[in-house]
């Protein structure tokens, strides 16, 4: 009996600390994007789009920093097939100076971003996905004119060694382009925590 008590001791408040929230299958409402390198965009800015790889991303996080090149390569591989990469920075730029517009411009220019680097100043985009980390990846797919989350998780499973990583995100896109259900639709995301501004 005592053991049962011990198990229940912390659960109520620990559950609040749960970080992984699944939005798999959820419909995503199209959103407006203000990018530092490609102007203002929305889903209609990509006429051939079958889907998007939405990657929550930021300047500061050391794990995100490892994915600059991989994001561009992914876009170069799949954009011609109608899947575009969107890098979205949901960090609070008032609290974290390094995440401001000027620093985002620098990052996009220095690392030759071909993907739009979008500032999600209100954190509304991140809230739709309930994103928890940077980097964190989603695939939204167009089905009968609406957009649904078909993959959520990480870009791949090795930050420093892309050659030995399993490319989860690319595999999910390939599955969808072949008209198949995604083999591994959900993987663990990891990186720096996104803190949401209290209203």
């Amino acid at each position: 009996m005592k053991r049962v008590l011990a198990i229940f001791l912390f659960l109520p408040f620990l559950l609040q600390a749960q970080t992984e929230v699944s939005v798999l299958g959820k419909e995503i409402l199209p959103f407006e994007m203000h990018s530092v390198n490609k102007g203002n965009l929305n889903f209609n800015s990509f006429p051939n789009a079958k889907g998007f790889a939405v990657i929550f991303f930021c300047n500061h996080c050391p794990m995100a920093k490892l994915y600059d090149k991989r994001m561009q390569e992914l876009d170069q591989k799949f954009a011609v097939q109608g899947v575009h990469v969107l890098a979205i920075n949901p960090m609070d730029s008032l609290v974290y100076e390094e995440e401001n517009w000027k620093e985002m411009v620098k990052r996009a220019s220095r690392n030759k971003f071909v993907v739009p680097y979008v500032q999600d100043g209100s954190q509304e985009i991140a809230k739709q996905f309930q994103a928890q980390h940077t980097p964190q990846a989603y695939v939204v797919w167009k089905e009968e004119g609406r957009w649904f989350v078909r993959y959520e998780g990480s870009f791949d499973d090795n930050g420093e060694h892309p050659d030995s990583a399993t490319p989860f995100l690319a595999n999910a896109i390939s599955d969808l382009l072949e008209g198949k259900p995604v083999t591994a639709p959900q993987t663990e995301s990891f990186g720096c925590r996104i803190f949401y501004r209290k209203k």
Binding site: P62, M63, N158, G159, F190
Partner: peptide, 16 residues
């Protein structure tokens, strides 16, 4: 005080 990464596990991904 930095956010950083370290290879804590013998193989695979780095740890935040």
């Amino acid at each position: 005080v930095y956010d950083t990464l370290k290879q804590l596990r013998p193989t695979g991904n780095q740890t935040v």
